[in-house]
Write a protein that binds this DNA or RNA. Structure first.
Length: 585
DNA sequence: AGCACGCCGACT
DNA sequence: GTCGGCGTGCTC
């Protein structure tokens, strides 16, 4: 707070104060806020009730100034005298609304707790300017929680605060436990599944006093923190760092913006930085020569037939003989998602947009006809990889009842990415079909697969011959080479270069727009408003939804135009999802 | 989101 | 003639 509220002219008893209030309505039409006559106690960031039409709605105070109140209705009750944002944080909130093509009213409440904040017992905090605002990425493996703890301590000792954001609830719990062992009650944990009143209590404690470390998931990215000097993001490249519903806010981008405005430092921690981090030129710091334990590559070309190579089978037997546990990783439940030409073994791709299609004859991304194999003209395709069910079945042919789902009593666990956090006391990891993940349909499949395999390698204890075996038909693929070397950076730099050539994120911008229902024809509305401000692919139809892909070097003008189009479609009763910087296409 | 306004078909 | 369907647009 502070700094604003210069007085203009005379005032008597605060009657000349005008508050700009954004009503809690899901529409772009009120983004500018409405002006109301206010009393002296009304300040920026407060939650108030304001008359609107013939009812009263919740609203957020975005500005207060001394001005003529003639013709203005008065602000009603103050619902929360504790402000949930100051003008610095509001700057980031406004940026998010415009960047993610969302009404401001959809973004503002993210600064606050789930319930109304209780009245502050102490004065609202100022966001202190840090001495130096720096950004560093520390490439680490299993020692990430300790790396975070090492960075937190000096900031707390200086009486300032830290915000730590991790991808999932279980990682939040582990990190919070470690920090509590060192700093006790100064650690404020925000378990995402906690009751609203508990989360609200943490929020107000954190805003009231500096010298704390708040640990939570991306939902805390907009929270105001008293005396914030450092934000730590663990595994910023993971999907969980981004909201899936509109507005599809990414924690990394919010923290980056806030760091610039509020002047605090950012520490990124993880084993595989995103290409976005590389594109931003953030300083990379290595803690050791490898970011994950050694990976053994099994060349499937030399050993055809079946799901498991002889060497893999023998390694599993060896572990079972010593009463160890094996984790067999496969990339999807259910059906194999990738197809290749039976004749020439080329992966099937959409001839129009290059996406790897799902079963069917039309592309789910752009709607084009898939047609025959682009390389040899073949018309028959076979499934690549296999799901958990299929792999378990095959393993049982060799190992009988020893194979079962991850987390069960069997010595062989079969599972997917979602089982990685639960891996304990595993002696050997096996990736059945690395190619299915590496050659995924998304433009960033290679980067994503490297991240998953690195996480998997880090989840298996290191030493005593225990390791990860990775089966592939592409032992020279850059992702596989990176896995062997233990260093993700050369591959990521190469990947960033090719994204630049193709105009794909993070070098170019992509927005996905999904529309279902409504009385207006979305094709016409979009064509008319967005027109040729960007390249549009689509619509692809899927499950009654129309889906467009909007691509360009700079979509800032398109974003502006989209607000109108999205507003009009929603007025017509349509459900519209806007995904800015989608993580999977 | 409400709520009014306005333009059409149906009804005491 | 008036009631009410919902498509359209505004709310300081």
């Amino acid at each position: 707070m502070g700094g604003h509220g210069r007085r203009r002219g005379s005032r008597k008893g605060g009657e000349l104060r005008v508050a700009s209030v954004v009503p809690d309505l899901p529409t772009f039409a009120v983004d500018e806020g409405f002006r109301y006559a206010a009393t002296e106690q009304v300040a920026i960031g407060m939650v108030v009730r304001v008359p609107l039409g013939r009812r009263t709605v919740r609203g957020w105070v975005v500005a207060v100034e001394d001005d003529d109140i003639t013709g203005l209705k008065p602000v009603g009750a103050v619902s929360s005298p504790t402000p949930i944002f100051d003008r610095h944080l509001l700057q980031t909130l406004r940026w998010a609304a415009s960047y993610y093509v969302a009404p401001l009213a959809a973004v503002l409440p993210r600064a606050g707790p789930p319930n109304l904040p209780p009245s502050a017992s102490s004065p609202p905090p100022a966001t202190n300017a840090a001495a130096r605002a720096r950004a560093v990425y520390s490439i680490v493996g299993r020692e990430a929680p300790q790396e975070v703890a090492d960075a937190v301590s000096p900031v707390l000792e200086a009486g300032n605060s830290v915000m730590v954001i991790l991808p999932t609830a279980s990682e939040v719990a582990v990190q919070a436990d470690l920090l509590r062992g060192i700093h006790g009650v100064r650690v404020l944990e925000v378990p995402p599944q906690a009751p609203q009143r508990e989360v609200t209590a943490v929020w107000s404690e954190m805003t009231a006093r500096p010298g704390r470390v708040v640990v939570g998931t991306h939902r805390i990215a907009f929270w105001p923190v008293a005396g914030l000097h450092l934000a730590v993001l663990v595994e910023e490249g993971r999907r969980a760092m981004k909201d899936r519903q509109t507005p599809t806010v990414h924690a990394r981008e919010v923290i980056r913006r806030r760091a610039g405005v509020e002047r605090f430092s950012v520490l990124y921690v993880g084993s595989v930085p995103s290409t976005s981090v590389l594109a931003l030129g953030i300083e990379l710091r290595r803690r050791s020569t490898r970011a994950w334990p050694p990976v053994e590559v099994i060349d499937r070309r030399a050993d055809p037939g079946g799901f498991l190579a002889d060497r893999t089978r023998a390694a599993i037997r060896g572990v079972l003989a010593k009463d160890g546990r094996v984790f067999v990783f496969t990339h999807r439940h259910g059906y194999a998602p990738a197809y290749r030409c039976v004749a020439c073994k080329t992966l099937r791709r959409c001839p129009s947009c290059g996406s790897r299609p799902e079963p069917g004859e039309t592309c789910t991304r752009c709607g084009a006809d898939l047609g025959p194999c682009t390389s040899c003209g073949g018309r028959r395709f076979e499934a690549l990889g296999a799901g958990v069910g299929r792999i378990t079945e095959v393993l049982r042919q060799t190992f009988g009842e020893k194979a079962g789902p991850a987390g069960g009593d069997t010595p062989i666990w079969v599972g997917t990415e979602r089982d990685i956090p639960r891996l304990e006391r595993i002696s050997l990891g096996v990736v059945v079909d690395a190619d299915g993940l590496i050659l995924g349909s998304a433009y960033n499949a290679g980067e994503e697969s490297l991240r998953v395999f690195a996480r998997l390698a880090n989840a298996i204890p290191f030493g005593h011959g225990r390791h990860l075996m990775l089966q592939t038909s592409m032992p020279d693929h850059p992702v596989v080479s990176a896995l062997k070397s233990g260093d993700p950076v050369p591959y990521l730099e190469e990947e960033l270069e090719s994204r630049r050539d193709l105009g794909l994120p993070p070098a170019g911008e992509v927005i996905v727009l999904e529309v279902s229902g409504g009385s207006k024809d979305p094709r016409a509305v979009l064509q008319q408003s967005i027109g040729d401000s960007a390249t549009m692919f689509g619509p692809a139809e899927r499950g009654g939804k129309l889906r467009w892909l909007i691509q360009g070097r700079d979509l800032s003008r398109t974003r502006q135009l989209m607000r109108g189009a999205v507003g009009r479609l929603r007025e017509g009763g349509a459900t519209v999802r806007v995904d800015v910087d989608p993580l999977d296409l």
